[in-house]
Each structure stands twice: as C-alpha cells, then as structure tokens.
Simulated assay, not measured.
Amino acid sequence: MATGDGAPLGLRERKKQETRAALSWATIRLSVERGWDAVTVEDIAAEANVSVRTFRNYFSSKAEAVVARHIDRMLHVADDLRARPADEPLPEAVTHAVLARFAPEPGADRSPRSREFLSQWVKGIRLMLTEPDVQGEFFKADLVVQRELATAIAERIGTDVARDIYPSLVAAATGAAATVAMDHWLRSDPTVPIGVILSDALDRIWAGLPVP
C-alpha cells in the first residue's frame, strides 16, 4: 500500500486505512444482510470491533461509509495509471488501470453455492443503492474521483486540466463507464462478470461510441 506519490505508507497511516476499510465493509455487509434502516452506527462499530466514536472519526454517516470503498478503489485507478509504462497508449493505460481494480479476488469461489450467495448479495446491494443518502454520497464521490483521475491523465499526456478540457472529458467518460457497467452488472440475470461488462464499456468509449 502506498501514497498517491508512490511512497509506502507508514504503520499509523496503514492502520488508519485498514480501519476505514473495515468500517466500510461492515456497513455494506450489515446493510445487505439486514436492510438499510435496520442497521445502526452502533451495530457497525461493533461489527468492526471499534467504538462509535472511532466510526464518527472516519465517517459522518452510514452512506458515507458505504461509498468509501468505491471512492478508494477509483482513486487507486489514478495511482495505477501513474504507474503504467510511459510509452503505453492512453486508452490501454486507462483500461488496464480501471480493470485491475475490478478484477475478482484471487481464489474466488465459483461454485453453484457461491453463485447463489452472490445473487442474493447483488439483490441486497441493489436495494441499498436506492437509498437517497447513498445516491447523494456517490454523486459527491464521483466528482472527487473525476478530478483526481483527470489530473493523472493530464500528467500522463503532458497537459494541464486548467487549460485543457481533454483530461476531464476522459475522466468523466471513464467514470461514467464504471457507473454504467456496475449498474448493468447489478441488473444482469444471470450475473455477468463485472470485468467483462466494464471492458466492453471502455472499448466502446475509446471507439467513439459508434452506433451498434
């Protein structure tokens, strides 16, 4: 784990990020299992084995905690883009950076029982994402992510977001592709791997969105 400039994190900062991630996962997991309104901040803190005060130090609400995983993942896309080979064309570099953050965990269970669990999990996520507070936090997070990704793109192509609209356009299109792909994945039946959908979405964008 590293900072945005590639330097390794210190122990204290690493522990803070681990606590943040644990709280975000606990919020998502409990909300999917019990329903949004049935989960309290006290429940989340207990699930993550921390105090309510610690939760409040990281997040102002359940919705902010839910969105934390999304924003952290997408900010890492910008970090990954900066680490791609300098001679790699921008479309390939952006696509690789995005897909790397949506790849399945190594050793993921693909058994029928696991697929049934995934189906139930997706239904829970879908319901949680209908909550207005969660939708609002996603909107705010996407603005932050787009700015950071646009900056990374500008650095890569040797321009400046203050005078060139191109990096911001690419960042916005990339973020839209991720959002649409995730929504399509949540609604697909049977479930299609998110990486397949996202790769297709990015390919279409880079091709100029030709009419099928």
Rank of each mutant, 00 (worst) to 15 (best):
W25S: 03
R82D: 10
L30M: 14
Y58H: 14
M128P: 00
E155P: 01
E92G: 14
G10N: 06
A172D: 09
E47R: 13
P8Y: 06
P106K: 11
A173K: 12
E88Y: 11
D189K: 13
A154E: 05
M182P: 04
H184I: 14
R156T: 06
M182Q: 12
V122S: 02
K123H: 11
R29V: 00
K140N: 06
M128D: 00
P212D: 06
A171L: 04
R53C: 08
V41K: 13
E18N: 09
S61Y: 02
W36T: 07
R163T: 15
S188P: 07
V98Y: 02
A97C: 08
R147Q: 13
R53E: 14
G6V: 07
A97F: 01
A201Y: 07
G195P: 01
L143S: 12
T159D: 03
Y58S: 05
E155Y: 04
P190N: 08
S111A: 01
A141Q: 05
Q135F: 04
Q17R: 15
R84A: 14
Q120E: 11
R20A: 12
A38C: 09
A48E: 03
P190K: 03
V161Y: 04
I194S: 02
S114F: 01
A68W: 00
A97G: 09
P104V: 00
E42G: 15
R187S: 14
R53G: 15
A172V: 11
V196R: 13
A103Q: 10
A103T: 08
A21W: 13
A63V: 00
V122P: 01
V170W: 02
G175W: 07
F59H: 02
P210Q: 06
T179I: 12
S119G: 12
E137W: 02
L118V: 04
E116W: 10
R110S: 12
A2G: 06
A103F: 06
D183C: 13
H184N: 10
V41S: 09
P212M: 07
V145C: 03
A171P: 00
I205T: 07
R126T: 11
I205M: 15
G6C: 07
T3D: 12
D160W: 10
A46M: 10
G6E: 04
A150T: 09
R14Y: 11
A152G: 00
A7P: 01
A181K: 07
R126C: 01
A176Q: 12
S114M: 09
A63F: 01
R29W: 03
L209C: 11
Q17S: 12
T191N: 04
Q146W: 14
D87C: 06
D189E: 15
E13N: 04
R53N: 13
V50Y: 11
R204W: 07
E131R: 14
E92D: 15
P91M: 08
L186N: 05
L81C: 07
S114T: 05
A176V: 02
E131G: 02
F117C: 06
A86E: 15
D164L: 05
L81F: 05
A108S: 07
S188H: 06
R115A: 12
